[in-house]
Design a protein around this nucleic acid. Sequence first.
DNA 1: CGTCTCCATACCTCCACGGTATCGACGTGC
DNA 2: GCACGTCGATACCGTGGAGGTATGGAGACG
Lengths: 306, 306
Amino acid sequence: METDGPARPNGPAETDGLAAAGGLETRELRYFVAVAEELHFGRAALRLGIAQPPLSRAIARLERRLGGVRLLARTSRSAALTEAGAVLLREARSALDAVDAAERRTRRAASTSTGGPGLVLVAKAGASSELLAKLLDAYAAEPGAVPVDVVLCGIAQQSRLLRDGRADVALLHLPFDDTTGLDTEDLYTEGQVLVLPAGHPLATRPRVSMAEAASLLDLPLPRWPDADGRYADGPGPPAHDTTQLYQLIALGRGAAILPESCRTNLRPDLATVPVPDAPAVTTLIAWPPHSRSRPLAALIHTATRR
Amino acid sequence: METDGPARPNGPAETDGLAAAGGLETRELRYFVAVAEELHFGRAALRLGIAQPPLSRAIARLERRLGGVRLLARTSRSAALTEAGAVLLREARSALDAVDAAERRTRRAASTSTGGPGLVLVAKAGASSELLAKLLDAYAAEPGAVPVDVVLCGIAQQSRLLRDGRADVALLHLPFDDTTGLDTEDLYTEGQVLVLPAGHPLATRPRVSMAEAASLLDLPLPRWPDADGRYADGPGPPAHDTTQLYQLIALGRGAAILPESCRTNLRPDLATVPVPDAPAVTTLIAWPPHSRSRPLAALIHTATRR
DNA sequence: CGTCTCCATACCTCCACGGTATCGACGTGC
DNA sequence: GCACGTCGATACCGTGGAGGTATGGAGACG
């Protein structure tokens, strides 16, 4: 049937031809990321909801499409990332975030006209709450303001939410947060204070230095979860948010060095002592590059104009 | 055959099920970008090398997968972008750049160990050549330096090369280049000078102001191509690179305001006059976020340590 | 040396992609 | 006003690839 005739009946004719151009489907990238994270084809397949053999084939095909690059060093017992595989893992995560962002932002662009949220702002729970309240009030008073959803999240998840399109804009804090790949404007800089139980001996001091805090303090500094939601090993109790943190401090289980502005909403059983030589904390507003919609630009303008 | 039995014979079972989660293949995005750019299904199909009906269906499927969003307003005569379509066009371009970057960087990571270039640096032809030469020399002297390919390109294409993985690092110039979405470090700030034919009356002045340059100058300022390689309408001859520009000036067809450092390699038949009130030009080194390989970090370190 | 684990291969089924043919809608020219 | 051209949508078909199960081969372990 395909012998001759006026026209070739069909055929992708270049979908599989050579390794070459324009390939890399997102499915393949998702599969590779799963395998690279699990370092185990069986578990990765389980996570992806497919069987193991198709996954093996998909990875092999991906390697072929990249020109015969070995992404994983397989023994018949396990799998390890090659150098190229490590590069692809990093790049694939970023690319998949961008694809997810494309989907989410498009969906929201469509739902905005039908009453969905116009902007999603993400902030750390308990941080810069006064600044945030003022910003939201000021923006709401602007002509043409759209509804703003506020998402409060844990530490260090904000930039991910921005990158994969779940949020449009974030309040971040230097030097704690990572701003690489984001556009930012500084909003506010402040010093830091030591937060202690009200009855603690140091609580009556007019100020303490970082060195004094480290040496005189008999309380451990709590640990925050990292970007994966895990807690690093070490001393001190784990704290997930400021409420937990304050309670731990009130219970005499720890102390913390926080930006001054935490004093506005502090529990009465906690005390603060300025730490003049602690690094200054800058609150800034951040958004993904190339995503300046009109409402976002207005919000940024409102935030920086003061 | 699929009535019962010990196991369901096969079936993607969720590939097309609902609109839902984790979709958006890059092929669909490429198709959509082609249609959105052409605003014509037939031409887009031609460009993509497929027939028109499959393209129509692919776009329709994409709209369904996004939850019934209308991306294109079709009349039976033509197609126009909806608001959501415009959002997806922007986001899809960025996502496809990221996917392409993943592919390119992985290929290069694999070829690096087999003698390929270690880093690709992109700079505007004719700009900052002295700085660039010093940087390359200093980096080459570092222990563990890898080969650096230098790509010279026209104006305003550099950030694209960085974003889609064809280059690893660039020399950009504020306030001319767009640095959104890139990580940067400032390298050098300098004033600007007016570049004239050697015999021009203004060439003997010790300095000129911007206002004087605008009013006294009888020569037009040449036009540079924009990011798409097109020339905006307006007066003045079009110039593609500094060689063309210098020749145009030498021929008495124009003048230009350029950073001081252009004087190091200037033709003898051109003269320069300082313009003290012209905006300062900052040369900076830029790289894509989350791509700090060890050689790249070393190059950036070398560049900023002076 | 059997057994278990883990990745690869073999072989099957079916959907989705791509192809051609054609229709319906809308301008356009005589 | 009606034939015609254009453009997108629909109908129908064939194939490739994505997914499935069954099984093989290689190394770790008792």
